[in-house]
Design a protein around this nucleic acid. Structure first.
Length: 418
DNA sequence: TGACGTCAAGATCCG
DNA sequence: CGGATCTTGACGTCA
Protein backbone atom coordinates (compact mmCIF):
# COMPACT_ATOMS: atom_id res chain seq x y z
CA UNK A 1 0.00 0.00 0.00
CA UNK A 2 1.22 3.46 -0.90
CA UNK A 3 0.26 6.74 0.82
CA UNK A 4 0.82 10.05 -0.93
CA UNK A 5 -0.17 13.68 -1.41
CA UNK A 6 -1.06 16.07 -4.19
CA UNK A 7 0.82 18.66 -6.23
CA UNK A 8 2.77 20.81 -3.79
CA UNK A 9 4.73 20.68 -0.58
CA UNK A 10 4.64 22.54 2.70
CA UNK A 11 7.94 23.58 4.25
CA UNK A 12 10.22 22.11 1.58
CA UNK A 13 12.51 24.74 0.01
CA UNK A 14 12.67 25.26 -3.75
CA UNK A 15 9.65 23.19 -4.70
CA UNK A 16 7.14 25.80 -5.87
CA UNK A 17 5.50 25.88 -9.31
CA UNK A 18 5.70 29.29 -10.99
CA UNK A 19 3.39 30.70 -13.63
CA UNK A 20 2.42 34.02 -15.15
CA UNK A 21 -0.71 35.67 -16.48
CA UNK A 22 -1.80 35.21 -20.06
CA UNK A 23 -0.82 38.69 -21.26
CA UNK A 24 2.78 38.18 -20.07
CA UNK A 25 3.33 34.91 -21.91
CA UNK A 26 6.27 34.72 -24.29
CA UNK A 27 8.44 31.83 -25.46
CA UNK A 28 11.36 32.92 -23.31
CA UNK A 29 9.11 33.45 -20.28
CA UNK A 30 7.69 29.96 -20.76
CA UNK A 31 11.18 28.50 -21.14
CA UNK A 32 12.20 30.09 -17.83
CA UNK A 33 9.05 28.93 -16.06
CA UNK A 34 9.29 25.34 -17.32
CA UNK A 35 12.99 25.17 -16.45
CA UNK A 36 12.19 26.40 -12.96
CA UNK A 37 9.21 24.07 -12.51
CA UNK A 38 11.12 20.98 -13.64
CA UNK A 39 13.84 21.85 -11.13
CA UNK A 40 11.16 22.20 -8.44
CA UNK A 41 9.62 18.86 -9.42
CA UNK A 42 13.05 17.28 -9.18
CA UNK A 43 13.40 18.68 -5.65
CA UNK A 44 9.96 17.36 -4.73
CA UNK A 45 10.84 13.89 -5.99
CA UNK A 46 14.09 13.99 -3.99
CA UNK A 47 12.17 15.05 -0.91
CA UNK A 48 9.59 12.28 -1.39
CA UNK A 49 12.37 9.71 -1.69
CA UNK A 50 14.13 11.06 1.41
CA UNK A 51 10.90 10.79 3.42
CA UNK A 52 9.76 7.46 1.99
CA UNK A 53 6.65 8.93 0.37
CA UNK A 54 5.85 6.57 -2.52
CA UNK A 55 2.80 8.24 -4.10
CA UNK A 56 2.60 11.72 -5.58
CA UNK A 57 0.34 13.76 -7.87
CA UNK A 58 2.26 16.04 -10.23
CA UNK A 59 0.82 19.55 -10.50
CA UNK A 60 -0.97 20.51 -13.71
CA UNK A 61 0.95 23.80 -13.45
CA UNK A 62 4.19 22.05 -14.43
CA UNK A 63 3.95 23.40 -17.98
CA UNK A 64 2.16 26.78 -17.85
CA UNK A 65 -0.60 27.22 -20.47
CA UNK A 66 0.31 23.77 -21.72
CA UNK A 67 -2.93 23.17 -23.61
CA UNK A 68 -3.50 26.83 -24.51
CA UNK A 69 -2.75 28.07 -28.05
CA UNK A 70 -0.49 30.75 -26.57
CA UNK A 71 2.01 28.03 -25.71
CA UNK A 72 3.38 26.74 -29.00
CA UNK A 73 6.70 25.60 -27.52
CA UNK A 74 7.63 22.00 -28.33
CA UNK A 75 8.35 21.63 -24.59
CA UNK A 76 7.94 17.91 -24.93
CA UNK A 77 11.05 17.81 -27.14
CA UNK A 78 13.00 20.69 -25.62
CA UNK A 79 12.81 19.21 -22.14
CA UNK A 80 12.86 15.56 -23.18
CA UNK A 81 16.10 14.83 -21.34
CA UNK A 82 15.29 16.34 -17.94
CA UNK A 83 11.82 14.76 -18.09
CA UNK A 84 13.30 11.36 -18.90
CA UNK A 85 15.83 11.73 -16.06
CA UNK A 86 13.03 12.59 -13.64
CA UNK A 87 11.08 9.56 -14.80
CA UNK A 88 14.07 7.30 -14.23
CA UNK A 89 14.40 8.61 -10.69
CA UNK A 90 10.69 8.04 -10.08
CA UNK A 91 10.84 4.48 -11.36
CA UNK A 92 14.09 3.66 -9.55
CA UNK A 93 12.49 4.65 -6.25
CA UNK A 94 9.31 2.71 -7.09
CA UNK A 95 7.30 5.89 -6.71
CA UNK A 96 3.89 6.05 -8.35
CA UNK A 97 2.87 9.39 -9.84
CA UNK A 98 -0.35 10.73 -11.32
CA UNK A 99 -1.91 13.89 -12.69
CA UNK A 100 -5.37 15.37 -12.22
CA UNK A 101 -6.85 18.04 -14.50
CA UNK A 102 -9.05 20.39 -12.52
CA UNK A 103 -12.78 21.08 -12.48
CA UNK A 104 -12.52 23.13 -15.66
CA UNK A 105 -11.51 20.25 -17.88
CA UNK A 106 -14.92 19.04 -19.00
CA UNK A 107 -15.09 16.23 -21.52
CA UNK A 108 -18.89 15.93 -21.64
CA UNK A 109 -19.81 19.55 -22.39
CA UNK A 110 -22.39 20.15 -25.14
CA UNK A 111 -20.12 22.97 -26.31
CA UNK A 112 -17.67 21.55 -28.85
CA UNK A 113 -15.13 24.27 -28.07
CA UNK A 114 -15.12 23.20 -24.43
CA UNK A 115 -14.72 19.51 -25.18
CA UNK A 116 -12.04 20.18 -27.73
CA UNK A 117 -10.06 22.13 -25.12
CA UNK A 118 -10.65 19.29 -22.65
CA UNK A 119 -9.24 16.79 -25.12
CA UNK A 120 -6.15 18.95 -25.62
CA UNK A 121 -5.75 19.22 -21.86
CA UNK A 122 -6.02 15.46 -21.33
CA UNK A 123 -3.47 15.03 -24.07
CA UNK A 124 -1.12 17.40 -22.23
CA UNK A 125 -1.42 15.55 -18.94
CA UNK A 126 -0.68 12.22 -20.61
CA UNK A 127 2.18 13.72 -22.54
CA UNK A 128 3.93 14.65 -19.30
CA UNK A 129 3.65 11.08 -18.01
CA UNK A 130 4.72 9.70 -21.40
CA UNK A 131 7.75 12.01 -21.41
CA UNK A 132 8.68 10.72 -17.96
CA UNK A 133 8.60 7.25 -19.46
CA UNK A 134 6.38 5.84 -16.72
CA UNK A 135 3.90 3.04 -17.42
CA UNK A 136 0.09 3.08 -17.70
CA UNK A 137 -0.30 2.45 -13.96
CA UNK A 138 0.69 6.12 -13.52
CA UNK A 139 -2.75 7.61 -14.06
CA UNK A 140 -4.58 10.74 -15.11
CA UNK A 141 -7.71 11.29 -12.99
CA UNK A 142 -10.80 12.92 -14.47
CA UNK A 143 -14.27 13.88 -13.30
CA UNK A 144 -17.28 13.17 -15.49
CA UNK A 145 -18.36 16.82 -15.88
CA UNK A 146 -21.64 18.72 -15.98
CA UNK A 147 -25.30 17.68 -16.06
CA UNK A 148 -26.83 20.20 -18.49
CA UNK A 149 -30.40 19.44 -17.40
CA UNK A 150 -30.11 15.80 -18.46
CA UNK A 151 -27.73 13.54 -16.64
CA UNK A 152 -28.40 10.49 -18.80
CA UNK A 153 -27.61 12.28 -22.05
CA UNK A 154 -24.63 14.00 -20.46
CA UNK A 155 -23.22 10.69 -19.27
CA UNK A 156 -23.70 9.28 -22.76
CA UNK A 157 -21.84 12.26 -24.20
CA UNK A 158 -18.97 11.39 -21.83
CA UNK A 159 -18.96 7.80 -23.10
CA UNK A 160 -18.99 8.92 -26.70
CA UNK A 161 -16.25 11.53 -26.32
CA UNK A 162 -14.12 9.16 -24.29
CA UNK A 163 -14.22 6.52 -27.01
CA UNK A 164 -12.80 9.04 -29.49
CA UNK A 165 -9.75 9.85 -27.35
CA UNK A 166 -6.28 8.67 -28.36
CA UNK A 167 -5.50 5.14 -27.26
CA UNK A 168 -2.52 6.45 -25.24
CA UNK A 169 -4.77 8.83 -23.37
CA UNK A 170 -7.48 6.21 -22.80
CA UNK A 171 -4.94 3.81 -21.31
CA UNK A 172 -4.04 6.33 -18.60
CA UNK A 173 -7.46 7.74 -17.71
CA UNK A 174 -9.39 6.90 -14.58
CA UNK A 175 -12.67 8.47 -13.48
CA UNK A 176 -13.64 9.77 -10.05
CA UNK A 177 -16.87 10.62 -8.22
CA UNK A 178 -17.32 14.34 -7.51
CA UNK A 179 -19.05 16.30 -4.74
CA UNK A 180 -21.80 17.86 -6.87
CA UNK A 181 -22.90 15.91 -9.91
CA UNK A 182 -21.82 12.30 -10.42
CA UNK A 183 -21.90 10.01 -7.40
CA UNK A 184 -19.87 6.83 -7.08
CA UNK A 185 -22.64 4.60 -8.42
CA UNK A 186 -23.02 6.72 -11.55
CA UNK A 187 -19.27 6.89 -12.09
CA UNK A 188 -18.98 3.13 -11.67
CA UNK A 189 -21.66 2.66 -14.32
CA UNK A 190 -19.62 4.80 -16.71
CA UNK A 191 -16.30 3.20 -15.72
CA UNK A 192 -17.63 -0.32 -16.25
CA UNK A 193 -19.14 0.56 -19.64
CA UNK A 194 -15.81 1.98 -20.80
CA UNK A 195 -13.58 -0.55 -19.08
CA UNK A 196 -11.95 2.34 -17.21
CA UNK A 197 -10.80 2.18 -13.58
CA UNK A 198 -12.76 4.11 -10.95
CA UNK A 199 -11.26 6.12 -8.10
CA UNK A 200 -13.41 6.32 -4.96
CA UNK A 201 -13.15 9.72 -3.25
CA UNK A 202 -14.23 9.49 0.37
CA UNK A 203 -15.18 13.12 1.07
CA UNK A 204 -16.96 13.55 -2.27
CA UNK A 205 -18.91 10.43 -1.39
CA UNK A 206 -19.92 11.80 2.00
CA UNK A 207 -21.23 14.99 0.41
CA UNK A 208 -22.70 13.45 -2.73
CA UNK A 209 -23.52 9.84 -1.85
CA UNK A 210 -25.24 7.27 -3.99
CA UNK A 211 -28.70 6.38 -2.61
CA UNK A 212 -27.74 2.70 -2.69
CA UNK A 213 -27.24 1.38 0.86
CA UNK A 214 -23.58 0.40 0.67
CA UNK A 215 -20.75 1.17 3.07
CA UNK A 216 -17.63 3.03 1.93
CA UNK A 217 -15.71 -0.23 2.28
CA UNK A 218 -18.18 -1.93 -0.08
CA UNK A 219 -17.87 0.81 -2.69
CA UNK A 220 -14.10 0.57 -2.48
CA UNK A 221 -14.28 -3.16 -3.06
CA UNK A 222 -16.50 -2.64 -6.11
CA UNK A 223 -14.15 0.03 -7.46
CA UNK A 224 -11.14 -2.24 -6.97
CA UNK A 225 -12.65 -4.65 -9.50
CA UNK A 226 -12.52 -1.98 -12.21
CA UNK A 227 -8.71 -1.92 -12.06
CA UNK A 228 -7.00 -4.38 -14.40
CA UNK A 229 -3.48 -5.72 -14.09
CA UNK A 230 -2.01 -3.04 -16.38
CA UNK A 231 -3.73 -0.28 -14.36
CA UNK A 232 -1.68 -1.06 -11.28
CA UNK A 233 -2.90 -1.05 -7.69
CA UNK A 234 -6.43 0.42 -7.24
CA UNK A 235 -6.32 3.91 -5.81
CA UNK A 236 -8.67 5.93 -3.64
CA UNK A 237 -8.73 9.58 -2.59
CA UNK A 238 -9.07 10.31 1.09
CA UNK A 239 -9.76 13.65 2.73
CA UNK A 240 -11.51 15.05 5.77
CA UNK A 241 -14.01 17.89 6.08
CA UNK A 242 -12.74 21.20 7.50
CA UNK A 243 -15.27 21.67 10.34
CA UNK A 244 -15.17 25.47 10.03
CA UNK A 245 -15.79 25.62 6.28
CA UNK A 246 -18.48 24.66 3.83
CA UNK A 247 -19.07 21.00 2.92
CA UNK A 248 -16.32 19.67 0.69
CA UNK A 249 -13.52 21.90 2.01
CA UNK A 250 -10.42 19.91 2.81
CA UNK A 251 -9.18 19.93 6.40
CA UNK A 252 -5.97 21.65 7.46
CA UNK A 253 -4.40 18.30 8.36
CA UNK A 254 -5.51 14.66 8.36
CA UNK A 255 -6.73 13.79 11.85
CA UNK A 256 -4.83 10.63 12.64
CA UNK A 257 -7.53 9.13 14.87
CA UNK A 258 -10.25 9.57 12.26
CA UNK A 259 -7.95 8.23 9.55
CA UNK A 260 -7.11 5.08 11.50
CA UNK A 261 -10.83 4.50 12.05
CA UNK A 262 -11.38 4.72 8.29
CA UNK A 263 -8.31 2.63 7.55
CA UNK A 264 -9.50 -0.17 9.80
CA UNK A 265 -12.79 -0.34 7.94
CA UNK A 266 -11.38 -0.79 4.42
CA UNK A 267 -9.47 -3.52 2.57
CA UNK A 268 -5.76 -3.34 3.52
CA UNK A 269 -4.44 -5.17 0.49
CA UNK A 270 -4.39 -3.96 -3.06
CA UNK A 271 -5.01 -0.28 -2.34
CA UNK A 272 -3.15 3.05 -2.65
CA UNK A 273 -4.40 6.15 -0.80
CA UNK A 274 -3.99 9.68 -2.13
CA UNK A 275 -4.49 12.26 0.62
CA UNK A 276 -6.09 15.57 -0.30
CA UNK A 277 -5.32 17.99 2.50
CA UNK A 278 -3.96 21.48 3.02
CA UNK A 279 -0.78 20.44 4.82
CA UNK A 280 0.09 18.09 1.93
CA UNK A 281 3.33 16.17 2.58
CA UNK A 282 3.08 16.75 6.33
CA UNK A 283 -0.04 14.60 6.59
CA UNK A 284 1.49 12.00 4.27
CA UNK A 285 4.56 11.69 6.53
CA UNK A 286 2.30 11.55 9.59
CA UNK A 287 0.13 8.74 8.22
CA UNK A 288 3.09 6.77 6.92
CA UNK A 289 4.92 7.08 10.25
CA UNK A 290 1.82 5.90 12.11
CA UNK A 291 1.21 2.90 9.84
CA UNK A 292 4.88 1.91 9.59
CA UNK A 293 5.68 -0.23 12.60
CA UNK A 294 9.34 -0.65 11.65
CA UNK A 295 10.41 3.00 11.97
CA UNK A 296 12.13 4.10 15.14
CA UNK A 297 12.27 7.06 17.49
CA UNK A 298 14.77 8.90 15.27
CA UNK A 299 11.98 9.42 12.76
CA UNK A 300 9.86 11.14 15.40
CA UNK A 301 12.84 13.16 16.62
CA UNK A 302 13.36 14.46 13.09
CA UNK A 303 9.67 15.37 12.92
CA UNK A 304 9.88 17.04 16.32
CA UNK A 305 12.79 19.19 15.21
CA UNK A 306 10.63 20.63 12.42
CA UNK A 307 7.46 21.15 14.48
CA UNK A 308 8.92 22.25 17.82
CA UNK A 309 8.86 26.05 17.45
CA UNK A 310 5.33 26.02 16.10
CA UNK A 311 4.29 23.87 19.05
CA UNK A 312 6.00 26.27 21.42
CA UNK A 313 3.87 28.98 19.83
CA UNK A 314 0.66 26.98 20.23
CA UNK A 315 1.15 25.46 23.65
CA UNK A 316 4.19 25.42 25.94
CA UNK A 317 2.42 22.65 27.86
CA UNK A 318 2.26 20.43 24.76
CA UNK A 319 5.89 21.32 24.06
CA UNK A 320 6.88 19.87 27.45
CA UNK A 321 4.72 16.78 27.02
CA UNK A 322 6.14 16.05 23.58
CA UNK A 323 9.71 16.41 24.78
CA UNK A 324 8.98 13.96 27.57
CA UNK A 325 7.29 11.55 25.18
CA UNK A 326 10.49 11.32 23.12
CA UNK A 327 12.75 10.69 26.14
CA UNK A 328 12.42 6.91 26.04
CA UNK A 329 14.55 5.95 23.03
CA UNK A 330 13.36 2.33 23.04
CA UNK A 331 9.77 3.23 22.18
CA UNK A 332 8.06 4.37 18.99
CA UNK A 333 4.98 6.27 20.22
CA UNK A 334 3.90 7.63 16.81
CA UNK A 335 0.16 7.82 17.51
CA UNK A 336 0.63 9.60 20.83
CA UNK A 337 3.18 11.93 19.26
CA UNK A 338 0.94 13.04 16.38
CA UNK A 339 -2.20 13.20 18.53
CA UNK A 340 -0.43 15.60 20.88
CA UNK A 341 0.85 17.58 17.88
CA UNK A 342 -2.63 17.85 16.39
CA UNK A 343 -4.22 18.98 19.65
CA UNK A 344 -1.58 21.66 20.06
CA UNK A 345 -1.82 22.86 16.45
CA UNK A 346 -5.61 23.08 16.73
CA UNK A 347 -5.50 25.27 19.81
CA UNK A 348 -5.70 29.05 19.42
CA UNK A 349 -2.40 30.93 19.67
CA UNK A 350 -1.81 33.45 22.41
CA UNK A 351 0.39 36.46 21.80
CA UNK A 352 2.55 35.73 24.84
CA UNK A 353 3.42 32.26 23.55
CA UNK A 354 4.11 33.59 20.07
CA UNK A 355 6.53 36.15 21.49
CA UNK A 356 8.22 33.46 23.56
CA UNK A 357 8.68 31.24 20.49
CA UNK A 358 10.03 34.15 18.43
CA UNK A 359 12.58 34.86 21.16
CA UNK A 360 13.65 31.20 21.11
CA UNK A 361 14.20 31.40 17.38
CA UNK A 362 16.03 34.71 17.79
CA UNK A 363 18.46 32.72 19.92
CA UNK A 364 19.97 31.38 16.70
CA UNK A 365 21.01 34.90 15.71
CA UNK A 366 21.63 36.91 18.86
CA UNK A 367 25.34 36.12 18.92
CA UNK A 368 25.95 36.76 15.24
CA UNK A 369 23.43 39.44 14.27
CA UNK A 370 24.58 43.02 13.69
CA UNK A 371 23.40 45.79 15.97
CA UNK A 372 21.05 47.00 13.26
CA UNK A 373 19.56 43.51 12.91
CA UNK A 374 19.09 43.23 16.66
CA UNK A 375 17.36 46.62 16.79
CA UNK A 376 15.15 45.74 13.86
CA UNK A 377 14.07 42.46 15.47
CA UNK A 378 13.47 44.10 18.84
CA UNK A 379 11.46 46.88 17.20
CA UNK A 380 9.26 44.41 15.30
CA UNK A 381 8.72 42.32 18.42
CA UNK A 382 7.90 45.39 20.50
CA UNK A 383 5.46 46.60 17.86
CA UNK A 384 3.73 43.21 17.93
CA UNK A 385 3.57 43.28 21.73
CA UNK A 386 1.84 46.66 21.58
CA UNK A 387 -0.53 45.48 18.80
CA UNK A 388 1.02 48.04 16.46
CA UNK A 389 2.71 45.39 14.33
CA UNK A 390 1.96 41.83 13.25
CA UNK A 391 3.40 38.47 14.18
CA UNK A 392 3.80 37.89 10.43
CA UNK A 393 6.25 40.79 10.28
CA UNK A 394 8.29 39.36 13.18
CA UNK A 395 8.39 35.90 11.66
CA UNK A 396 9.04 37.27 8.19
CA UNK A 397 12.14 38.98 9.50
CA UNK A 398 13.29 35.84 11.32
CA UNK A 399 12.85 33.95 8.08
CA UNK A 400 14.99 36.49 6.27
CA UNK A 401 17.73 36.10 8.88
CA UNK A 402 17.44 32.31 8.59
CA UNK A 403 18.24 32.54 4.89
CA UNK A 404 20.99 35.16 5.36
CA UNK A 405 22.79 33.22 8.07
CA UNK A 406 22.06 29.86 6.43
CA UNK A 407 20.55 28.29 9.54
CA UNK A 408 19.61 24.98 7.96
CA UNK A 409 17.98 23.66 11.13
CA UNK A 410 15.53 26.56 11.03
CA UNK A 411 15.30 26.47 7.27
CA UNK A 412 13.90 22.94 7.46
CA UNK A 413 11.52 23.93 10.26
CA UNK A 414 7.77 24.38 9.79
CA UNK A 415 7.85 27.43 12.07
CA UNK A 416 7.45 29.75 9.12
CA UNK A 417 4.71 27.65 7.47
CA UNK A 418 2.35 26.51 10.22
C1' DT B 1 -23.74 38.27 -13.39
C1' DG B 2 -21.35 36.22 -9.67
C1' DA B 3 -20.02 32.23 -6.84
C1' DC B 4 -17.31 28.40 -6.85
C1' DG B 5 -11.70 26.73 -5.87
C1' DT B 6 -6.96 27.67 -6.15
C1' DC B 7 -3.12 30.48 -4.84
C1' DA B 8 0.62 32.77 -7.10
C1' DA B 9 1.07 36.81 -10.03
C1' DG B 10 0.36 41.31 -10.31
C1' DA B 11 -1.07 45.77 -8.50
C1' DT B 12 -1.26 48.98 -5.06
C1' DC B 13 -0.46 50.90 -0.72
C1' DC B 14 2.56 52.18 3.07
C1' DG B 15 6.47 53.62 5.74
C1' DC C 1 12.88 51.21 -2.26
C1' DG C 2 11.25 47.00 0.02
C1' DG C 3 7.71 44.86 2.29
C1' DA C 4 2.89 44.20 3.40
C1' DT C 5 -1.66 43.73 1.75
C1' DC C 6 -5.28 43.68 -1.57
C1' DT C 7 -7.02 42.17 -6.22
C1' DT C 8 -6.91 39.56 -10.40
C1' DG C 9 -6.47 35.71 -13.30
C1' DA C 10 -7.83 31.28 -15.93
C1' DC C 11 -10.80 27.73 -16.39
C1' DG C 12 -16.61 25.99 -17.07
C1' DT C 13 -20.95 25.27 -14.77
C1' DC C 14 -24.89 26.56 -12.44
C1' DA C 15 -28.14 29.38 -9.91
Amino acid sequence: MKIGYACKTVGVPNTEMKSCILKNVSDSKLMDLITHNLDSLNNIIDYNISQGIPLFRISSDLIPFASHPVNSLPWHEIFAQPLADLGKKILASRMRVSMHPGQYTVLNSPDNEVTSRAIKDLHYHCQVLDALGVGPEHKVILHIGGIYQNKRLSAERFLCNFKHLDKRVRSRLVVENDDKAYNIEEVLDIGVKLGVPVVFDSLHHEINPSPAPRSQADWITVCQKTWQKEDGIPKIHYSQQDPAKKPGSHSRSIGIGQFIQFYQSIPKENIDIMLEVKDKNLSAVKIINCLCGDRDIKTLEAEWSRYKYTILECSPQAYKELRQLLCDKSQYPAMEFYTLLENALNSPREAGNCINAAQHVWGYFKNRATTAEREKFMALLQAYKLSRGTLAAVKGYLRKLTVEYRQSYLFDSYYFEL
